[in-house]
């Protein structure tokens, strides 16, 4: 790692202030992706601003509108244990990485990184969640912006994610054998107003909604409603763990299984 200083503010406003001063700063949440990146010397911040001690952005509660509100600094383990009101989301969190990673990694860190194989983006997008930052609220459909890119501005901190709780939902992840990230992950959420399906791991554009399947399921929420629907392998990630065609095929399989499990 290159040398850097590390600051551990205890208040969100102090973190925001540090990020906007003259020193070249980078935010660190759980660090489960950032620290390996720093070890490879792929980042060279002068200073890391840690959110680890900012307790005000940790925790889970239910909003006035019934949404499940998860603080941006909440670890995967805490979501797994505390998001019982939204079992599909808790189950997703319980299967990210491994137990030690889940004790450090946070939902805000995962979303800000927007790894194309991460699990959380699919939940946020399929749920139609709202990403709340220190500055504004961002709808899920506007948040993700391709591989490792989001709508966040420099120095903007995810303070909370508000998940409307669907009537039924499930997440199906098919793991890449080495990293155990999603080779394909499909999150299906059924609301009274319709069905949302988000796919992670597969597309060269990052997490995306499978609108044809959403339409097919809107009137008939059963795996059979997906018969005949498929995606093209074009535009899907193709690597030694699977071709684009394989990933496209897995999306169909995992979507069916998610619908059946929801």
């Amino acid at each position: 790692m290159y040398a850097f200083d590390i600051e551990r503010p205890t208040r969100l406003t102090d973190a925001v202030k540090l990020l906007s001063d003259a020193t070249d700063s980078q935010l660190i949440a759980g660090g489960q992706t950032l620290i390996p990146t720093l070890k490879q010397r792929l980042a060279m911040p002068e200073r890391l601003v840690s959110l680890g001690a900012v307790d005000e952005i940790k925790g889970i509660c239910t909003g006035d509108d019934g949404a499940l509100c998860i603080g941006g600094g909440t670890t995967h383990a805490d979501v797994a244990a505390g998001a019982g009101a939204y079992p599909a989301l808790a189950g997703l969190a319980a299967n990210i990485g491994d137990p030690a990673v889940r004790n450090r990694g946070t939902i805000g860190g995962s979303l800000a990184n927007n790894d194309p194989s991460a699990c959380y983006p699919s939940a946020v997008l399929a749920s139609g969640a709202t990403v709340v930052t220190n500055a504004r609220q961002i709808a899920a459909d506007d948040f993700f912006d391709g591989l490792f890119a989001t709508n966040l501005e420099e120095g903007e901190i995810i303070t909370e994610v508000r998940f409307p709780v669907p009537d039924a939902a499930a997440y199906m992840k098919f793991e890449q054998p080495a990293s155990r990230f999603a080779l394909v992950g499909v999150f299906v959420a059924r609301f009274s107003g319709g069905v949302r399906i988000a796919v992670t791991g597969a597309s060269e554009e990052g997490v995306f909604r499978w609108s044809e399947a959403e339409a097919a399921l809107a009137g008939n929420f059963s795996a059979g409603a997906l018969d005949g629907l498929s995606l093209s392998g074009d535009g899907m990630i193709s690597d030694l763990h699977g071709s684009g065609d394989y990933r496209a095929h897995l999306i169909s399989v995992m979507t069916r299984r998610a619908v059946a499990a929801a």
Binding site: I6, G31, I35, L48, S50, A100, V101, R104
Partner: peptide
């Protein structure tokens, strides 16, 4: 449980 190689001492 945490991975001590993926956490700064300062934390």
């Amino acid at each position: 449980a945490v991975k001590a190689c993926t956490m700064f001492a300062a934390e």
